[in-house]
């Protein structure tokens, strides 16, 4: 079966996010007050061929570890289906 996958790559808590900070600083200029905790990440979509969803997840978790994220500074959230 083929499973659609969404991987969100996020900077780990405590890792500086200058892009997020810059966006947050820009928002009040447009009149948006009270926006906080802006964090910029990546969304990566693809599909995988696997026997079932559990097998797909094992494969996706592995490729997140090996390529899509750098575990020193990033973590991932995987959505399958």
């Amino acid at each position: 079966m083929r499973f659609p996958v969404l991987v969100e790559v996020r900077l780990r808590p405590g890792i500086a996010d200058p892009q997020g900070a810059t966006i947050q600083r820009a928002l009040p200029a447009l009149g948006y007050e009270g926006v906080a905790e802006v964090r910029v990440g990546k969304a990566i979509r693809f599909s995988v061929e696997a026997a079932d969803e559990a097998a797909a997840r094992v494969q996706v978790d592995e490729l997140c570890q090996r390529l899509l994220a750098n575990p020193v500074i990033e973590d991932t959230a995987v959505t399958i289906g």
Binding site: L11, I15, A16, D17, P18, N70, I73
Partner: peptide
């Protein structure tokens, strides 16, 4: 790892 410069 090397992350983005502080101060962007």
């Amino acid at each position: 790892a090397l992350q983005k410069n502080q101060g962007s």
